[in-house]
Computed example of a mutant assay.
Amino acid sequence: MKTTDVQNQRIAQMTFSSVYPHYVIKVENKGRTKQELHEVIEWLTGFSNKTLNQLIEEKVTFEKFFERASLNPNAKLITGVICGYRVEEIDNPLTQKVRYLDKLVDELAKGRKMEKVLRS
């Protein structure tokens, strides 16, 4: 799916630390834990809790966040609609990675079993 350059730039320059608290609230309001959220983020990016906290403190943009990440090879198994877009059809690689993360957080909040969220 085609995203606009303006959308892609906006996402690239957004800081991870500005979105992270919303992820935490979303999953905790649905009975999941911050630790489960970190497990999902680590699965996708390879970031340990320590590294994740450093990135939050540094206020890195999503662009820098995913430049430093080691994307899980099974990330391509993440499919479905998030924010009106099919994640597997997003043509901008960075926007697709951000939407992968959004999709995983959404699945976690909806109560999916962790092994399904982590595509194992």
Rank of each mutant, 00 (worst) to 15 (best):
K34W: 07
R32G: 04
V87N: 02
C83D: 14
S17A: 15
T15H: 03
V87I: 14
V60C: 06
N72W: 05
N74M: 12
Q9M: 10
L52T: 07
K59E: 14
D102Y: 08
K110Q: 15
P73T: 05
N8F: 03
I11N: 05
T61V: 09
W43S: 10
N49P: 05
K59H: 15
E107H: 10
L94A: 09
E115S: 14
S18E: 14
G46R: 08
A12T: 09
R32S: 11
E28I: 14
V24A: 08
C83G: 01
V19L: 06
K97W: 02
K34G: 06
G46W: 05
E42V: 02
K59M: 10
T95L: 03
A109P: 07
V98E: 02
S70F: 08
T4P: 08
K110C: 07
E88Y: 10
V81P: 01
D91T: 13
E107I: 03
N92Q: 09
L101Q: 08
R68E: 01
T3Y: 05
R99Q: 01
V6W: 12
Q96K: 15
V81C: 07
D106E: 09
R32W: 12
K26N: 15
K76D: 04
S48H: 01
P21V: 08
H38E: 13
L44M: 05
S17N: 14
T45Q: 01
G84N: 04
E36L: 11
G84I: 07
E107C: 09
T33K: 06
R99P: 00
K26Y: 11
A75L: 07
K30G: 03
R99D: 00
Y20C: 10
V87M: 04
R32A: 08
A75I: 01
L55M: 11
G111L: 11
V24L: 12
E36I: 01
K30F: 04
F47E: 00
K34H: 14
S48N: 09
Y23C: 05
F47L: 02
G80I: 04
L55Q: 03
N8L: 05
A109S: 15
F47V: 00
I56M: 05
K110Y: 10
M114T: 07
T45F: 00
T3N: 10
I56C: 00
E67S: 13
M14H: 12
K34M: 10
Q7W: 12
L77R: 11
K76I: 12
S70T: 14
V81D: 04
K64A: 07
G111A: 10
T79D: 10
W43E: 11
R68G: 02
K113P: 00
E88R: 06
P21N: 06
K64Y: 05
M14R: 14
I82C: 04
T33R: 03
I90C: 01
T4W: 12
T95N: 07
S18L: 12
Q54C: 03
E88Q: 14
F62P: 00
L101N: 00
N74I: 03
R86G: 08
I11F: 12
E63N: 09
K50G: 02
N92H: 13
I82D: 04
K34I: 05
V6M: 10
S70H: 15
